[in-house]
Design a protein around this nucleic acid. Sequence first.
DNA 1: GACTGGCACTCACCGGCAGCGAGTGCCAAG
DNA 2: CTTGGCACTCGCTGCCGGTGAGTGCCAGTC
Lengths: 338, 338
Amino acid sequence: MIEERKLAVLRAIIQDYVETSEPVGSKALVERHSLGVSPATVRNDMAALEEEGYISQPHTSAGRVPTDAGYRMFVDRLTSVKPMSSAERRAVQAFLEGAVDLDDIVLRTVRLLAQLTRQVAVVQYPSLTKSRVRHVELVGVSPRRLMVVVITTTGRVEQRLIDMTVEVDDDSVAQLRTTINQAASGRLLTEVPDALDSVVPSFHAELRPAVTAVVSTLLESLVEESEERLVLAGTANLALFGADFSTSIQPVLEALEEQVVLLHLLGEVAVPSQVSVRIGHELPVERLTATSLVTASYGEEAAGRLGVLGPTRMDYPGTMAAVAAVARYVGRYLEESS
Amino acid sequence: MIEERKLAVLRAIIQDYVETSEPVGSKALVERHSLGVSPATVRNDMAALEEEGYISQPHTSAGRVPTDAGYRMFVDRLTSVKPMSSAERRAVQAFLEGAVDLDDIVLRTVRLLAQLTRQVAVVQYPSLTKSRVRHVELVGVSPRRLMVVVITTTGRVEQRLIDMTVEVDDDSVAQLRTTINQAASGRLLTEVPDALDSVVPSFHAELRPAVTAVVSTLLESLVEESEERLVLAGTANLALFGADFSTSIQPVLEALEEQVVLLHLLGEVAVPSQVSVRIGHELPVERLTATSLVTASYGEEAAGRLGVLGPTRMDYPGTMAAVAAVARYVGRYLEESS
DNA sequence: GACTGGCACTCACCGGCAGCGAGTGCCAAG
DNA sequence: CTTGGCACTCGCTGCCGGTGAGTGCCAGTC
């Protein structure tokens, strides 16, 4: 168990360290915060905190620095997620106002988040697995080539060209279009393949192989590929914190470029509805162990996720508030415009 | 005028400096290169080169460092653009092989370029102004909502939803589709608005306003917006050269995020068909004056541009070769697959 | 006239050293 | 349990002299 004052000391250390990025000592601490006790007492508490692994000394006779565990404790014991200023709220709304399409919404969101937190922001496109089909359109662009366009309830439009092994005439295309729409409209994308399977037998035998192969391949690839769309912003902010990364920011930038890594991280969360914070070594990626990731879901049924990546020495309350607020606003905005 | 040997000395200085990133002195120079003269002679040449502004000393009694003008001279007087190794050629082909659609081609290209040059790579999507319409598809997704899909000869597919002021029935949509395709197929996107204007009178008066407004707005926005698509890769490579940037890589990363800046730079080139090299202060962007940009066009009629951004201390011959080769291969690949 | 060897000079860089000061742990007293 | 006091640690800064790579200049040679 941890006593109240020790926690206060930890909070004060983190607060100062986040601000100055320098190890903080007992004397400076009591001067800057009204802890109501003497430096010596604080020293005792600090010794205890170090014993318990929440803080550490870079070298003997230097101040203390929070460890990952220290930040973790701090975040878990956060009393109040500080609300955003009304100026910030207005900024958020103004920023999202006037977005013209989904791409635009996502772009504005990610930039907003980067600007608000002065960190790297990442936004995942609304997952197609959780959105529903609004309409499917088939277009024969040439005798053996078909284009399929899927419009989802989240406003996303995906298209793909398919080379056919047999020629398909316009009437068949029209029939296929109608049938597919009847079967697929309103369904979750994940349900669509099954729905379509049950539809295949209704076609002339000669068309069937083409229909099956083409449509199912298409939908699979849609679901897969569309999962992996991410947008980043604010990578330049990383350079501001260059000193926080023992070696260089290079590995971090690398990891960010491999979007697979980020997608994994966004996906792995215990309680999807809450703001999730993963700190330093809690991230299962070697190159990111000097960073923390704050994420949240947005939209209905957690359609997508967004987050902020920064050095472990970050302003957690502020970042968490920003992430939560932006997720909320974007979710609302998406619902309105759909 | 510049004599042959002075040029050789400049070449040697640049070569060594690019390799070591340290000021290079006269003695080391004659040791590493067989210039056939003594250090003293080289010193005289170096003094002259400095006089002419091609090299400079960071401080008295240090070696020389090439200036922007030095790199410029070096690049202009390049005798041979060194060809890529056959291993590299194979890598290029293997990398592009198997791309499934335009997005994939662009993505693979930009990654390839980043990997080949160990620098930041940027690829602009093929410009729609220079590509032609292959097919236009109209879909009524709801009574007052129309989706338009444009497929271009460069393999690009753009779609947009349009809210209509009046209801349009399916027959009208079909008629519109046919007419538009007749008018637009095979034309440059820039010609399409005019072509469509001449088509409007053929519709019933009541439909006309909707047709005009919707279609022309659509096409305009298509041309505008599609111009501004860029893909980046290899930003992590910037961190490798952190020392080359006097302050930090932050301003560079910032500039990269503002895609407008890059688009401008890609657009401004004297001779579009050649590889263009802009060095340091030749770039009209303050934040990028510590970098050089090597660009080239690819595809028919210079459909798009691509390039590489790195510190002025870069391997120009190698980068130029890579940029030229990748541009050539991608151009070829696009033609084949269209 | 062009090249070369020699020479004096500059100056960044390195290692050692001393002084400073922020910070610590411990202890004895309140 | 808290506090003031005290001795101790150790990173940081500044100073200093030596070293060496590099330079410019000059006089001699081909």
